[in-house]
C-alpha cells in the first residue's frame, strides 16, 4: 500500500484516515474533498497522466453527488475496477448492500471509529502484500 487516494469532505475524517494509512506504510496520500475532483483524478489515471493508487478510501455522503458516482466510474472500467476500494462512511444496510453490488470488498462504518478502520485496513494490507509476493 504505497499510494492512497482518500475521497472525503470532512476535514477531521481526512486527518484521521490519512494518519491511519500513513501508519500502515502509505508514502503518498492524496486527499480530495469532492466527487468531481475524484472522477477527474481517475480519468487521469486511465489516461496514464497520473499513477494509479493502490487503494481508494471512499466516503459516500457528500452534499451533492454521492460517493456512489465514484463507484459507478470505478466499476465502468475494468482497469479501474482492479484498484482496491474501501468504503468508510456513515451508513445503513442499504448502502452496504449497494456497495456489495458494486463489488466493494471492504465496507466499514464510520461510527465504529478509526481503530476499526485500522484493523480492517491491516488485514487488507497483509492480504495485498501476500498477493504481490
Amino acid at each position: 500500500m504505497h499510494r492512497v487516494l482518500i475521497v472525503e469532505d470532512t476535514p477531521a475524517d481526512v486527518r484521521q484516515s490519512s494518519a491511519v494509512v500513513k501508519k500502515l506504510g502509505a508514502q503518498d496520500v492524496i486527499a480530495l474533498n469532492n466527487i468531481a475532483a475524484a472522477i477527474l483524478f481517475l480519468q487521469d489515471v486511465l489516461e496514464g497522466t497520473k499513477p494509479a493508487p493502490d487503494l481508494i478510501l471512499l466516503d459516500l455522503s457528500f452534499p451533492r453527488e454521492s460517493g456512489f458516482e465514484v463507484l459507478r466510474y470505478w466499476k465502468s472500467n475494468a482497469k479501474l475496477h482492479q484498484i482496491h476500494v474501501v468504503v468508510w462512511t456513515v451508513m445503513g444496510d442499504t448502502e452496504k448492500k449497494l456497495c456489495q453490488f458494486f463489488g466493494v470488498e471492504h465496507v466499514i462504518p464510520k461510527w465504529a471509529g478509526p481503530k476499526e478502520l485500522e484493523a480492517a485496513l491491516k488485514t487488507f494490507v497483509q492480504d495485498s502484500d501476500t498477493a504481490q509476493t
Binding site: 453527488e65 454521492s66 456512489f68 458516482e69 463507484l71 459507478r72 442499504t94 448502502e95 448492500k97 449497494l98
Partner: peptide
C-alpha cells in the same frame, strides 16, 4: 419506496 430510495442513493 425502499427500492426507489436505494436507487436514488446511487444516482
Amino acid at each position: 419506496l425502499k427500492t426507489i430510495t436505494a436507487a436514488r442513493l446511487m444516482g
